[in-house]
């Protein structure tokens, strides 16, 4: 009887409000795929749109790929397999030379107008550029890049995951 009363009181006391918890575990941490410190990354990372979010896609590649070729491959859009997986692109299918000038600021020049491009599309470009840069162990001086189109210049772009 006494135990029951104690239990009831404990239940009542513990029943109210939000109680602090100790440190708890919840699943494995994300993995840094191509850490530059452990040798040059050999994977090519492209960013496509999956369920309205910019998501990285890993493509096997023979060697280190520069920013320009990574962006060119990005412009080609998701592969058949990736399309089936739900990946889309917000970028126009336009061929043309994409050039990058190392900074500061690191500037990526695209041959299509930037105004119609959505935020996700801009992120695709910026994130892929950053990933390609990181694969070589490099980074921009202030963590931003500038996008230059025939119509507009977008400075201080960061990858918004």
């Amino acid at each position: 009887m006494k135990k029951l009363v104690v239990l009831a009181v404990l239940l009542l006391v513990s029943a109210c409000g939000i109680k602090p918890t100790p440190v708890l575990e919840a699943g494995p941490a994300p993995t840094l795929r191509s850490p530059a410190s452990e040798g040059r990354g050999t994977d090519l990372i492209l960013y496509f749109v999956l369920a309205d979010r910019v998501t990285p896609v890993v493509r096997p590649s023979a060697g280190v790929v520069g920013i320009e070729s990574a962006l060119t491959m990005l412009m080609d859009g998701p592969s058949v397999d990736e399309r089936e997986g739900g990946y889309k692109t917000d970028l126009p299918r336009l061929s043309g030379a994409i050039t990058s000038t190392p900074g500061p600021p690191t500037t990526i020049t695209v041959p299509f107008p930037l105004r119609p491009i959505t935020g996700a599309g801009v992120n695709q470009l910026v994130c892929t550029a950053f990933a390609a840069l990181a694969a070589r162990g490099g980074y921009t001086a202030d963590g931003t890049v500038a996008l230059a189109g025939p119509d507009i210049l977008l400075p201080y772009q960061t990858c918004q995951a």
């Binding site: 850490p35 490099g138 960061t158 995951a161």
Partner: peptide, 28 residues
């Protein structure tokens, strides 16, 4: 977690202060 996973490919170690700041901005 998803944001980090998405951003991680753009990060190389060791990061600079600017990289950390951009990372934080990406996770704003």
């Amino acid at each position: 977690r998803d944001q980090i996973a998405a951003y991680l490919p753009t990060v190389s170690l060791p990061p600079s202060q600017a990289t950390l700041d951009s990372f934080a901005t990406a996770l704003k």
